[in-house]
């Protein structure tokens, strides 16, 4: 009862690769990951793809489907037209290892750089008391399944290898926010830290991360904006530079540290108190009828920035596409640098 459908899958490794064409059977009720498994079982046993739970719970199967960052196991085939070609490519922001598998160690490095929970001194295990309303705010962020789709989508690092060192990314902003809002966390400098060490200032609240989050975590509205809000009036922030667009003048006033250029907005008090309109204010965007939000920052045909193949319309025209992924970042994820190689261990590759 299955129908044959056309699939295009990027195959290759860090040295480069190609889109390959496949015709595969598709049955009612299947998801994209089912099709990849069918490909592995019938045509390409060595097609590399990560997955674990097939239930949207582990965040392993992140990929770009028709240019949109998505979970393969949560993308129903019925969301495509009957005759639509489905193009599957690896996450673009991270170096390709093989086929659909990318090196996501960037994220694990950033996790290590995010200060951990600081338990309240003097409170014994078993004596923690917190109200449900108070834990709920942080619980929203702990829903994160670490699929890294938000990290992949964020334009600050998506085509900007050079920003990676300074920028932790939305996943770790919500981690910082989670701890900031944790009723018993003992650190008080989470906001300042996010600003000064995690590169939160580079975020200009485009909300692309929120849009792709499969857990529907309101990354920007509930984490980033509250984290920025109070920091903004205390320290220099590139965002303040944009302040003439986003903030009323009275919010900028009286801050000695503020190095933002003066702005005319609000000078006449005409705009005072009125929500600013040419850019997103700190309040949430409109939620569309389908429960999602519009992405307003850059209006591209595909989510979160251009495709790995340059400016392309999907489905791609047939023919060869030479995708050159960024070179892997050695030194960031240094296997065995801690002198673990035995005396006879020259690990010289292949």
């Amino acid at each position: 009862m299955g129908t044959k459908r056309h699939f295009r899958v990027w195959r290759g490794d860090s040295a480069g690769g190609d889109i390959e064409d496949f015709d595969v059977e598709v049955n009612e009720g299947e998801v994209v990951l089912d099709i990849i498994h069918r490909l592995q079982a019938t045509q390409t046993p060595d097609l590399a793809c990560r997955w674990n739970c097939k239930a949207g719970k582990c965040g392993s199967c992140s990929m770009e489907i028709n240019g949109k960052p998505r979970l393969g196991c949560m993308t129903r085939m019925s969301t495509f037209e009957e005759d639509e070609t489905v193009t599957i490519t690896p996450l673009r922001t991270f170096p390709v290892i093989r086929d659909l598998v990318t090196d996501v160690s960037f994220n694990y490095d950033k996790a290590r750089e995010t200060p951990a929970f600081a338990p309240p001194p003097g409170v014994a295990p078993g004596d923690y008391r917190m109200q449900q309303v108070d834990v709920e705010r942080s619980q929203e962020f702990r829903k994160c399944i670490e699929c890294f789709l938000c990290q992949n989508t964020c334009h600050v690092v998506r085509d900007h290898e050079e920003n990676k060192a300074a920028f932790s990314g939305p996943r770790y902003f919500i981690r910082a926010a989670e701890l900031d809002m944790h009723p018993l966390d003992d650190r008080t400098d989470r906001k300042e830290y996010a600003q000064s060490h995690q590169g939160m200032g580079l975020c200009n609240i485009t909300k692309c991360c929120t849009e792709v989050c499969p857990e529907h975590i309101k990354i920007t509205d509930n984490a980033i904006i509250p984290m920025k809000e109070r920091v903004v009036d205390r320290r220099y922030d590139p965002l303040v530079w944009l302040g003439r667009k986003i903030f009323r003048r009275d919010q900028l006033d009286g801050d000695g540290e503020n190095m933002a250029p003066s702005s005319s907005v609000g000078v006449t008090d005409v705009a005072k108190g009125a929500p600013f309109t040419t850019n997103r204010g700190p309040e949430g965007p409109e939620v569309r009828e389908d429960g999602r939000m519009d992405v307003t920052e850059v209006t591209l045909p595909t989510q979160g920035g251009p495709s790995p193949f340059g400016d392309q319309q999907f489905p791609l025209p047939s023919g060869r596409v030479a995708y050159q992924p960024p070179a892997p970042q050695y030194g960031v994820h240094d296997d065995g640098q801690d002198g673990d190689h035995g005396t006879d261990g020259h690990h010289q590759g292949h």
Binding site: F117, P119, Y128, M130, Q132, L179, D185
Partner: peptide, 9 residues
């Protein structure tokens, strides 16, 4: 909880 877990209350 001392590691940071947040159970329902």
């Amino acid at each position: 909880e001392t590691y940071g877990a947040l159970f329902d209350r």
